[in-house]
Amino acid sequence: MTQAVLEVRGIVKHFQTRGGAIARAVNGVSFDLAKGETLGLIGESGCGKSTLARVLARLDTPDTGEVLLDGNDIGRIGNRAMKPIRRRIQMIFQDAVSSLNPRATAGAAVAEPLKLHRVVPRNKVKDRVAELFEAVGLPVGLMSRYPHEMSGGQCQRLSIARAISLDPDIIIADEAVSALDVSIKAQVINLLMDVQTRLGLSYVFITHDMALVGVLSHRIAVMYLGRFVEVGDADAIIRRPMHPYSQALIAASPIPDPDRPRTQALPIKGELPSPIKPPSGCTFHPRCPLAQARCKSEVPELRTTGEARQVACHFA
């Protein structure tokens, strides 16, 4: 593997809820992200994936753990020191329309980061904005529109233009296409992949859609209650998931082929427990069809099993 551009080490992020309880949103997550690589991060709502995204994009600071960008920890540095680093890590949000300032035109939204970081001389900003519009397939005529005057797909293209205007190394995409219509989703996914090839970007692509993550990631990390339970090559995980939770996720993902022989899905019971009172031992044990006594008491470590695969299960 090539040199990691981002190394994440033991990130922990807990929140205090209003009642004073502690929600363990992210509970010790580590991974490397190589240049040009897409890490697909999958899990159900409440598993901590969005919190992790916010920590990686430095919208939140981790309680403990390090976010190493080229070997330097950016996890807890101040706002001023963070500013030049912002150029290198960008984020795209789920709700495209509301992730754009309602009072800024499309042109202004893309020009803003260019001016803020003096990416190009002031008199070249306009040309650069036009180039960026073209790069994401937006008609230049939309420049004077406001976000609410554009479609969801156009807004998400605009967000992408805004993100790549700073020529970042890493883009964190948090459910970036989930809200889009099927026919538009494909366009935006293709755009994201084109941009990646052209600019050599690395993505952390967060989603709950297993099929989507399978299509666009090189590696997949499956997250459950604040921890990674399985990490490995996308192809391998989709074809041969080892953790019972990964297996359940794949079995539950509907496939648009009615004639496909139904795989006998593992019966997964109940719902994601609250991160305030996570189950003891392996947090998946109350829903796991394979659970034994050991799973209730002993936390399984994420250990390497075979070629570039890590699984946190006593029986994998």
Partner: peptide, 30 residues
Amino acid sequence: RGLIAAVPRLDGVPIGSAQTRRLQEIPGSV
């Protein structure tokens, strides 16, 4: 036809095959 082709699918052939992956898109907007 476009809609069915545009959906990423778990049993799809080109999974994770580096940069050759592309989804069928329907041009234009809803």
